[in-house]
């Protein structure tokens, strides 16, 4: 998934081979992760696609089914992965993820702690940010979920950057071995204030913390707890408004019909009073916000160790 893997990184010379993870793109809201396996087929509403037809094509290719339907095969990125991963829990989306990475000041080489792992949506982007020399230690108290996350990171080729532990961080705090070593910590827990004293222990001086909470009451309690050891405590909400773009045709009028400057398609139309009206159609590309949007994900509270 990352350019770190020099053999697998995208390039004009690279083509899809057996065992590759590809993102099958039907349309922007319909994608699926598939591991290419020579004898397998993909079946969807467009027909049956043979994996063997895919092998040897470049990423970004359009491939056809037995019925002539088509999909695109894309190289995976953390953004695409977030759209296709199996939701074992509520996940973080791209606007929050991007903001968290930037605001926590995560750069290559950082040591980052995370709890809980959940479906690993954020973890994937954390791994990208700390690569090639840093590491993400992520914890979930749910054994099976941690296992599924581990399998996912294996599949996306990130397992060398991520360690998944099974641990109740709210109850036990982060493991002592990370004391004073963490550059940044991310919490997505129901009662984050219980874990905050442990976070203060783990962070380096001036290290950064982010806590994600859907409810304002959680934020309120977290911020009270943060007062003791943290400074620069700030809470944000970040959302995305998306736009749809269309070419629309619009009619215009020229009252007396003598306007000969119009070079666009015209129609002469006789009005009831006998005079002529020239109506013209012009088309232009226009954008407007999409009618529906995610109205709330969660509050992001950031703080810095004093």
């Amino acid at each position: 998934m990352l350019a770190n893997d020099l053999e697998k990184r995208i390039s004009f010379k690279r083509s899809i081979s057996n065992g590759d993870l590809v993102i099958v793109y039907e349309k922007h809201d319909s994608m699926k992760a598939v591991t290419v396996s020579e004898g397998s087929v993909l079946q969807n509403r467009f027909g049956v696609f043979k994996h063997s037809d895919w092998i040897g094509n470049p990423f970004g290719s359009k491939v056809f089914s037995n019925k002539g339907g088509f999909v695109y095969l894309l190289a995976p990125t953390p953004e695409l992965w977030t759209l296709v991963l199996s939701h074992r829990t509520q996940i973080l989306y791209i606007a929050d993820i991007s903001f968290v990475i930037m605001y926590l000041e995560i750069v290559p080489g950082c040591l980052v702690l995370e709890s809980g792992t959940g479906s690993g949506s954020l973890t994937t982007s954390l791994a990208r940010a700390v690569a090639p020399t840093g590491h993400v230690y992520t914890f979930d108290f749910h054994d099976q979920r941690a296992g599924s996350a581990r399998d996912d990171f294996e599949r996306t080729g990130l397992s060398s950057l991520i360690s998944v532990g099974v641990r109740d961080i709210q109850g036990e705090g982060f493991p002592d071995e990370f004391t004073g070593l963490a550059d940044s910590v991310f919490l997505d827990l129901p009662q984050p204030w219980l874990a905050i004293p442990s976070v203060a222990k783990m962070l380096k001086q001036d290290g950064t913390l982010c806590s994600f909470s859907p409810c304002i009451e959680q934020v309120q309690r977290s911020c009270e707890t943060l007062q003791t050891c943290f400074t620069d405590i700030r809470t944000f909400e970040v959302l995305l408004r998306t736009y749809e773009v269309r070419e629309e045709k619009m009619g215009t009028f020229h009252g007396d019909g003598n306007d000969s400057n119009v070079s666009l398609p015209c129609k002469r139309r006789q009005c009831s009073d006998g005079s002529y009206v020239v109506s013209t159609t012009i088309s232009s590309v226009m954008a407007r916000p999409c009618g529906e949007a995610r109205g709330h994900t969660g509050y992001l509270t950031f703080a810095r160790l004093k």
Binding site: H28, L74, V219, C223, I233, E237, V238, R241, T242, V245
Partner: peptide, 14 residues
């Protein structure tokens, strides 16, 4: 996968 988006950011006093 073309998309135009506009991020919206609001800070809170807590």
């Amino acid at each position: 996968g073309l998309q135009i988006s506009e991020p919206w950011l609001r800070e809170y006093q807590v």
